[in-house]
Amino acid sequence: MSSPEHQRGPVTLRRQQVPTSTTDQRLLDNKSGRADFIHTDTWRVLRIQSEFVEGFGALAELGPAVSVFGSARTPVGHPEYQRAEKLGRALVEAGFAVITGGGPGTMEAANKGASEAGGVSVGLGIELPFEQGLNRWVDVGVNFRYFFARKTMFVKYAEAFCVLPGGFGTLDELFEALTLVQTRKVTRFPVVLIGTEYWGGLVDWLRRSMLADGKISEQDLELIQLTDDIDEAVAAVSSAEALSAHQATGIDDAPVEA
């Protein structure tokens, strides 16, 4: 005799896993008055879906943009703050919107530079135990519960990443971008590290340890550009954006002049 079997959409349930009530019955039966269902994984899927919908809706018409990463702990007036502010301004002058994590420090500075230059200043916030809210220079702000939904927006709507000195969060965003480009999950775009004194040691370690041990290739290292010059960083972003636009036309394969 075959065991009981129950189909719940694409899921097959057998033996003790077969439910004793129907999905509709459990939906409509409110005798217990409990709201535990809003804390279940299936309910979280709807929250995750809503975050993607909100993010896509808010940014779909953003146009060319660059995601800027850096420390939330950078104090106002610090040279790194001033550099991020200059970067935000220069990116807008080059025709880009600026996307940050929406927090204080380096993120605030980049948003400030972009906003004061008359460009679109975007902040993608995240719910944290030490929530600080979006900085006052954000013109378009979206708050997320889930890191992975937020990270999708950073990548999907950016032509490039510009990475200033930062901590674990900045490293997380940097290496996720590099991994996506290396594995060709996204079209290649520039990843520019700004601050040779800060990032130089990391790049040296990648070369001496990871490359030397065969864990990455020379081609992988070429995904990273290291500079102290804001104009050079913006030029790298602009050249890549122009090349991408040219290739998208499909007119010919001639190289684009820098």
Score class of each variant (00 low, 15 high):
residue 4 P to V: 07
residue 93 E to T: 03
residue 151 K to C: 02
residue 174 L to A: 09
residue 257 E to H: 12
residue 107 M to N: 04
residue 57 G to Y: 06
residue 190 P to V: 04
residue 64 P to S: 11
residue 195 G to A: 01
residue 163 V to Y: 12
residue 20 T to K: 11
residue 150 R to C: 09
residue 221 L to G: 14
residue 103 G to K: 11
residue 142 V to E: 01
residue 44 R to Y: 09
residue 2 S to V: 11
residue 55 G to K: 02
residue 10 P to I: 01
residue 136 R to M: 05
residue 24 D to I: 13
residue 178 L to S: 02
residue 241 E to W: 06
residue 60 A to V: 15
residue 136 R to V: 06
residue 20 T to Q: 14
residue 51 E to C: 00
residue 178 L to K: 01
residue 221 L to Q: 14
residue 207 R to W: 05
residue 57 G to A: 08
residue 125 G to W: 09
residue 198 Y to R: 05
residue 42 T to N: 13
residue 83 R to K: 14
residue 140 V to M: 03
residue 174 L to C: 08
residue 223 L to K: 10
residue 93 E to K: 03
residue 181 V to G: 01
residue 27 L to G: 05
residue 89 R to Y: 00
residue 36 D to Y: 15
residue 2 S to D: 14
residue 193 L to P: 15
residue 181 V to P: 00
residue 146 Y to Q: 13
residue 13 L to H: 06
residue 78 H to Q: 00
residue 246 H to I: 04
residue 66 V to R: 01
residue 18 V to Q: 15
residue 44 R to S: 09
residue 141 G to Y: 08
residue 1 M to L: 12
residue 24 D to G: 06
residue 232 E to W: 03
residue 25 Q to R: 10
residue 48 I to V: 10
residue 106 T to E: 06
residue 39 H to M: 00
residue 69 F to S: 01
residue 73 R to K: 09
residue 198 Y to H: 15
residue 126 I to N: 05
residue 52 F to T: 07
residue 77 G to R: 07
residue 93 E to W: 04
residue 153 M to E: 15
residue 223 L to F: 15
residue 115 S to V: 01
residue 137 W to A: 00
residue 233 A to E: 01
residue 102 G to E: 06
residue 55 G to Y: 03
residue 11 V to D: 08
residue 96 F to L: 05
residue 216 I to Y: 08
residue 182 Q to G: 07
residue 144 F to S: 02
residue 177 A to D: 02
residue 173 E to A: 01
residue 55 G to M: 07
residue 191 V to T: 11
residue 123 G to H: 12
residue 141 G to C: 14
residue 78 H to K: 13
residue 35 A to I: 09
residue 73 R to L: 05
residue 128 L to F: 08
residue 16 Q to M: 02
residue 144 F to H: 14
residue 52 F to W: 10
residue 21 S to W: 12
residue 245 A to D: 10
residue 50 S to E: 12
residue 245 A to V: 10
residue 46 L to T: 11
residue 227 T to K: 08
residue 183 T to F: 09
residue 108 E to P: 05
residue 39 H to S: 04
residue 226 L to F: 09
residue 214 G to C: 07
residue 88 G to S: 14
residue 97 A to E: 00
residue 95 G to N: 03
residue 145 R to D: 09
residue 246 H to W: 11
residue 113 G to P: 07
residue 254 A to M: 15
residue 215 K to Y: 05
residue 185 K to P: 02
residue 152 T to C: 05
residue 162 C to E: 13
residue 216 I to T: 07
residue 66 V to D: 02
residue 252 D to K: 06
residue 156 K to R: 14
residue 201 G to N: 08
residue 143 N to P: 07
residue 199 W to N: 05
residue 164 L to G: 08
